[in-house]
């Protein structure tokens, strides 16, 4: 015991660190995806791995977080954003060659099933004392939320200062759409604005949805692209193709996303 060479320990440690996790066939793929894609992309990943025999790893976060991480050198093969604003700068910076819109989404107001329930309609959002949680303006869904509130305000259906009154009720600006959903689910907030796709089966049992009519709603377009410094170009291409394929679109549809006919971004 006494005569273990000091070098032995680092050698063992590094062997542990750098050993392959398992003897899997296929390639490891890293996909950075917007938080709103958590459920659908997890399922797409499983289907893709079953087909290709590789291992797809996901990092889900607010698109603006992922963009910052990629700008600062995070290694990923594929990036799927919830809007162009968090995607185009990466194209301009030369990190991504081009993007394709792969799905669309809409927004919805959710209120907790349990509790006071003083929000029943869109106009109730402007009632004094309502605790409204939305996403921060840097998050795509937060930007869309403000856009919808502006449109609702201009419609003259809810009173002139509707937008201002609603924004006055905002008690928290979350950095991730799932945090907005969580705070409504827990009953801490009276209402929140999320993507329709965030109302997953598990969330649907605890919240009530208040639909935003199509003429006031926005259509969030999700671009996907391959990182130029990806070390698995082929696998990355196969993954984006799979997302755009009928199988991929069917899974996205199952989670409430709207289908697209794949279109190249300008």
């Amino acid at each position: 015991m006494r005569k273990i060479k000091p070098l032995f320990i680092p050698a063992v440690l590094s062997a542990l660190f750098f050993a392959p996790v398992s003897g899997q066939q296929g390639t490891n793929l890293t996909v950075f995806a917007a938080a709103s894609l958590t459920d659908s992309f997890t399922e797409i990943g499983k289907a893709f791995d079953a087909k290709m025999g590789g291992k797809t790893n996901f990092q889900f976060a607010g698109s603006q977080v992922l963009r910052t991480q990629l700008e600062n050198g995070a290694k990923a093969d594929v990036y799927a954003s919830a809007n162009n604003a968090q995607f185009d700068p990466l194209v301009k910076a030369g990190l991504i060659s081009s993007g394709t819109i792969f799905t669309k989404n809409r927004l919805v107001v959710i209120v907790p099933k349990k509790g006071a329930g003083n929000v029943k309609t869109l106009s109730d959002l402007a009632k004094p004392g309502v605790k409204l949680v939305i996403a921060d303006k840097t998050v795509p869904v937060g930007q869309y939320t403000r856009q919808i509130l502006e449109t609702l305000g201009k419609s003259n259906k809810f009173g002139a200062d509707y937008t201002a009154r609603v924004l006055k009720n905002v008690v928290s600006e979350e950095t991730n759409v799932r945090q907005v959903a969580l705070k409504v689910q827990l009953g801490e907030a009276d209402a929140g604005v999320v993507y329709t796709t965030d109302v997953t089966p598990s969330l649907a049992s605890t919240v009530i949805q208040i639909a935003i009519p199509a003429r006031y709603n926005v259509v969030a377009k999700y671009p996907i692209g391959i990182l130029k410094n990806s070390s698995n170009m082929d696998a990355a291409k196969a993954f984006t193709d799979f997302v755009l394929s009928r199988d991929g679109q069917a899974i996205l549809g199952k989670w409430g996303f709207l289908p697209v006919a794949g279109s190249k971004l300008p």
């Binding site: 949680v133 921060d136 905002v170 008690v171 928290s172 600006e173 979350e174 950095t175 705070k183 801490e188």
Partner: peptide
């Protein structure tokens, strides 16, 4: 506590 400028 959430996250709101000037409050929390």
């Amino acid at each position: 506590a959430g996250s709101l400028i000037g409050s929390t």
